[in-house]
């Protein structure tokens, strides 16, 4: 018997284990999608115009000083809706630690309001016009897809841009790292 055969067996087992782990992880959390470059100044981000559910003008600048989790979503986007219960929990847990979530949709205001009520969303759900997806793209959404979530520091600077679902535990660990809390 050749001496390298047991080593080959170990290597094969390690390979199979690696593949199994990767497949299991892939099933649990979709793989990350690399974001594109950011092409928006903090001032432009903080002054981008939105409207709240009552039609009043809003902008992210009103939350200056807080770490913002800005989530671009839509009611027709199933993955968007599936990640939002996690955002609701995180908003509750992190609201006293200087973290504010904001949802932004280019959508039917009535549907946005109905979904917010149904899910018990505890953070502002704002509406945007045609420029919403353009802003999302300038914040790193190079694919122009939903959901897209951007983490901003208290001065409106982009800390992280994530295309696709932001799983609750992953986002929570990012918030802990960013705030040091």
């Amino acid at each position: 018997m050749k001496g390298w055969l047991p080593l080959a067996g170990i290597g094969l087992l390690a390979g199979l284990a690696g593949v199994s782990l990767w497949l299991a992880d892939r099933h649990a959390t979709p793989p990350a999608i690399e974001a594109g470059p950011v092409d928006a100044s903090p001032a432009a981000i903080q002054s981008a115009p939105f409207r709240d559910g009552q039609g009043a003008p809003r902008s992210l600048g009103q939350f200056a000083g807080k770490v913002l989790v800005v989530n671009f979503w839509a009611t027709w986007c199933t993955p968007c809706r599936e990640e939002m219960p996690g955002f609701v929990k995180l908003q509750s847990r992190w609201q006293d630690r200087g973290v504010q979530f904001v949802g932004i949709a280019q959508d039917d205001p009535a549907k946005v309001a109905a979904f917010g009520r149904e899910l018990g969303v505890n953070y502002p759900l704002w509406l945007g016009e045609e420029g919403v997806m353009d802003l999302s793209r300038r914040l790193g959404n190079r694919l122009g897809v939903l959901p897209h979530t951007v983490l901003l520091d208290g001065q409106g600077r982009v800390i992280e841009s994530r295309i696709g679902v932001f799983a609750e535990p992953v986002l929570e660990s990012r918030l802990a790292a960013i705030t040091g809390k």
Partner: peptide
């Protein structure tokens, strides 16, 4: 959409 991942505007 791409199942469980993203939706295209």
């Amino acid at each position: 959409c791409a199942e469980d991942r993203i939706c295209y505007s």
